[in-house]
Amino acid sequence: MYKIEKATKLADRVYEFWIRAPHVAQHARAGQFLILRLHEAGERIPLTISAVREDAVRVIFMTVGKTTEELATLRAGDRITDVVGPLGKPSEIANYGTCCVIGGGVGIASTPPIAKELKDAGNHVIGIIGARSADLLILEDEMREICDELYITTDDGSKGVHGFASDVLKKLLEERTLDRVWIIGPAIMMKVTSGVTVPYNVKTYVSLNPIMVDGTGMCGSCRVTVGGETKFACVDGPEFDAHQVDFNELMQRQRIYTAQEKVSLERFAEHRCRCGEGGHRHE
């Protein structure tokens, strides 16, 4: 059992949890993720490791379905049955020169470890964090502290640049040379944003988020096509060369269980109503 040390709501439907998991915390590197299972009847879901402090790891998640809704009902002191990790290959960190790290929505959660390791490796690090609106923007202070420059975008213009991260990226590329770009966010955002770097021939990494089960390379649920070849995101990735990724296939495969996910969430919502707000607990 893995204890939740701290549980904070960061924004509407966005939560930050610190979970005590020494075996994960002691080995985690930028770009890696963990898989958790809430209880004996639970499913395994992957979440990026967003920070590490001593024996605890931070995950930041948005409630998008049954398991994340249920996770959000947990409080500090509660326990999660299984946490396994760190999983996946770490980000390819080196001294490249000038690097840009872009986070979209809850994908911003993945950006601080990458930005920090790039900075420590001697890079000039530019951060771009974007959200639909100002109240959904997370980790701004943290990213400001790590990055040499930080740009903020909102779709509705309520903060920073009115527009998308891709707009800022385009402008940067017109003005100067970027040596590496990282983009983490929803699949459609990664597809669109990474398209911007193609004409400039800048090596661009995206962190893919397909459906996973075990996360150790034994099932292929997370398979993606990269450069025409089938890769398993959990062991070959999750970071890949953005210009080689078949994003349409990724988005199609993300929808495999849409119908079941809806059933599960509705059943959970009904159950929670009957039990009273936040009353749902599995021991």
Partner: peptide, 12 residues
């Protein structure tokens, strides 16, 4: 993951 017992179990 006992997906045969979905939605009693969460894995579809």
């Amino acid at each position: 993951m006992h997906a045969e017992a979905f939605p009693e179990f969460d894995t579809p």
